[in-house]
Amino acid sequence: MTAAIQLENVSKIFYSGRERVEAVKELTCAIEAGEVVLFSGPSGSGKSTLLNMVGCLTRPTVGRVFLRGREVSRLADHFRSDVRRNEMGFIFQQFNLLPGYSALDNVAMPLVPLGLRASERREQAGILLERLGMSHRASFAANELSGGEQQRVAIARALVGDPWLILADEPSSNVDMKTAHRLLSIFSEFKKEGKTLVIASHDQMLLESDLIDRELVLPDGEWVRRGRSQAPPTAV
């Protein structure tokens, strides 16, 4: 059976002036559909870089990334945009909402290039905001929302294309404890819906939750089984 996500010998090298930084080193792994996987490790271990490579936000310097059996790491730029739009939703650590746009318009923004009418886009975005308990803030500008509210808007935006894959980068690092618990509950819903969820975090609360099926510890790439999932380990 084809893995939902497969990384083959991927490395990512950055250059800072003359300094060469190998953020991810020759990593090979596979993630099954419906799994909730945590990329963990200390700061600078390459969690976010690895997540960005899975999310087609950056290309590996070496190696290949496959989503549902299709290699995405070497796709042309516009095909990678299609992949990001149609197959995944990304929740950023800093939320990355567009300032000056309302919460509703931020959620609807990924639908703009699809050619949907404004009323249709807003209807879809409104449903998601309601699901995340944010409908009362729909008309507020992104910069008028609290951190927790911004995060829920960012989650709604990640869901608006009905993706099978959700990627979250340090989702609990910029929110308070109460919001973090609510976040766990939202992620649990995704899990029940059968979505594949990949989270990059070193948050102990996430590590200790039942949500995570497996943990990939970076920079070594060791797999650790977590939670009560019956999913088979696919460590390579």
């Binding site: 999310g55 936000l57 730029d77 516009h78 945009s81 299609d82 990001r84 739009r85 149609n86 990304f90 950023f92 990355n96 567009l98 923004m109 990924p110 703009v112 290039p113 935006r157 294309g161």
Partner: peptide
């Protein structure tokens, strides 16, 4: 630049 990056990250194409 950041906004352009965000738009690309949420699925907008370069041509858009």
């Amino acid at each position: 630049r950041r906004e352009i990056g965000i738009l690309k990250a949420i699925g907008w194409g370069t041509l858009d």
